[in-house]
Simulated scan of single mutants.
Amino acid sequence: MEAIFSKEIQAGLDQARLDALKKSARLRVSADGAIHPVLRMWKTGFVLESEAPPLRGLVDLYDGSIHLFQCLIVTSDDEDGERRYEFKRATAVSEKPAVDFEIPDDTPAGLIEDTREHGT
Rank of each mutant, 00 (worst) to 15 (best):
I9W: 00
G12A: 12
E49N: 04
K43S: 06
E102N: 09
A90I: 05
F87Q: 12
E82C: 14
D60S: 10
P54R: 12
E8D: 13
P104G: 08
E51D: 14
S30N: 02
G33R: 01
R56Q: 14
E8Q: 13
R116Y: 00
Q70I: 03
M41K: 08
F87K: 10
Q10I: 02
L13N: 11
R84E: 14
Y62K: 03
G110V: 04
P54K: 10
D106L: 04
T91H: 09
A16L: 12
E82Y: 14
S76P: 02
T120C: 07
R56K: 13
K88N: 11
G110S: 15
F87H: 10
R17G: 02
V38S: 09
I4L: 12
V74W: 06
S24T: 15
G12I: 02
D80H: 10
E117C: 03
G119W: 11
I4C: 08
F5R: 05
A98H: 08
G12K: 11
D106F: 02
G110I: 00
V93N: 08
E79T: 02
Q70E: 09
E79G: 01
G57E: 07
E86G: 09
L39G: 10
G33I: 01
V38E: 08
D14E: 07
R56E: 14
F46N: 07
D60W: 00
G57W: 10
S76N: 05
R83C: 04
V74I: 13
G45F: 04
L58F: 06
R89V: 03
L18S: 14
D100A: 09
V93T: 06
R116F: 02
M41D: 05
P37C: 04
P54L: 05
K96W: 11
A109Q: 02
L68P: 07
R89E: 10
T107C: 04
D106K: 04
K43L: 12
I66F: 05
R116W: 03
K7D: 11
K23Y: 11
I103W: 00
D100E: 14
R28V: 00
A52Y: 09
D80T: 15
M1I: 13
I112D: 12
P97G: 02
I35N: 10
K88L: 15
L55S: 06
S76A: 07
D60F: 05
S76F: 01
D19T: 11
A25P: 02
G119N: 06
E79C: 01
Q70W: 00
G12T: 08
G12H: 01
V74M: 12
F69Y: 15
S30C: 09
A25S: 11
T75P: 14
L55W: 05
G12P: 01
D105A: 11
L61V: 12
F87N: 13
L58Y: 06
I73T: 03
S24F: 07
E82K: 13
R56C: 13
K43G: 05
V29P: 05
T91Q: 15
T44M: 13
S30Y: 07
G33M: 01
P97E: 12
G45W: 04
I103L: 10
D14L: 08
F46E: 09
D63C: 03
A16P: 08
